[in-house]
């Protein structure tokens, strides 16, 4: 199990697709026997997980994009979120 660090470059899991969901106007993750309906925040994180950007860059980009967001809180939430998705192989670290 890989740990997540500031220089980790997360991407979607090997067999995972993110696509728009007509029914909700949002986005979903699809994988083997898995559907995850993303909320706006989840999508905002995952659309930056392209295997190029580091976690540090993703956090900085999110902090810049949200008003009243403080860096340590965002960092903590992004780490938690990506770790949980990585546990289900929805994200590769």
């Amino acid at each position: 199990m890989r740990e997540i660090h500031g220089d980790t470059r997360p991407r979607l899991g090997q067999y995972v697709r993110m696509r728009p969901d007509r029914a909700t106007g949002g986005y979903v993750l699809l994988g083997p026997e898995t559907v995850v309906v993303l909320n706006q925040t989840g999508h905002a994180v995952l659309r930056l997980c392209d295997g190029e950007r580091t976690v540090d860059e993703i956090v900085a980009s999110l902090v810049a994009g949200f008003e009243d967001a403080d860096e340590p809180t965002v960092r903590g939430q992004v780490h938690d979120y990506l770790t949980r998705l990585a546990d289900r192989n929805l994200v590769a670290l």
Binding site: A23, T41, G42, T73, V74, Q77, Y81
Partner: peptide, 19 residues
Amino acid sequence: MTDTVTGTPQPAAPRPFGL
């Protein structure tokens, strides 16, 4: 970003996710 980052909201109306 005040809410917890989460990926599993509960849609209210019945909807078939799988066929």
